[in-house]
Amino acid sequence: MKRNFLLYCCLMQILVACAPAPSWQVIHETEVTSGATYQVVLPAGWMRNPANKEALFISLDGPALQGITIQEASHHEAFKKIKGISTPDILPSELAELTLALTKNEFAASRVVLLKNTPALVAGHQGFRLHFKYETSKGLDYEGIITGFATSEQVYIIKYYGTSLHYFPRDLPVYEEVVQSFQVTGE
């Protein structure tokens, strides 16, 4: 009985390990989706990657060309990777500073260059908007925008990136609509 049980456990492990990663899913019509503490409208025709557990990630043509990411995190967790500390009374400029630092660390090899850093009203909260550029090791140029804000409980970050040529400027209006639709639930 014990041996059978162990055998079944091993088989389950193998089956789970062999299971294919969930594939991208089409957003068939404009979809209102929810995170733990937020709600946002996603654009029809874009694709969502369910495999990404840390954030909601969507793309229209593929992650090498453009993408929108939505993340929520507690103040304690938001900037842990760079040993940064966010607090409920963090200023928008300080939140922008930490977000930029995190981005620079994540893209260390690509040399992030800040183009603009301004305050922004997001979901009724005073936040920030960063506009930056970077290039891959092959030399392909990308641009990115990060909009973010904090409540007393959480930090919310909405990112957009695309190739500087064509994709970033083309899909920027879609990103702006996503940001406009963002709401914190339970407020």
């Binding site: 294919p20 594939s23 991208w24 899913q25 089409v26 694709m47 043509d61 593929g62 992650p63 090498a64 060309l65 092959k138 030399g139 392909l140 140029d141 190739t163 500087s164 040529l165 064509h166």
Partner: peptide, 26 residues
Amino acid sequence: VHEHVLLYDAVASQAFIAANMPAVGW
């Protein structure tokens, strides 16, 4: 022109996945 060739590399790789790897979902 060079930048567009780099873009082509990225676009073609993405398009290749879309056309030839149905399991990925594109």
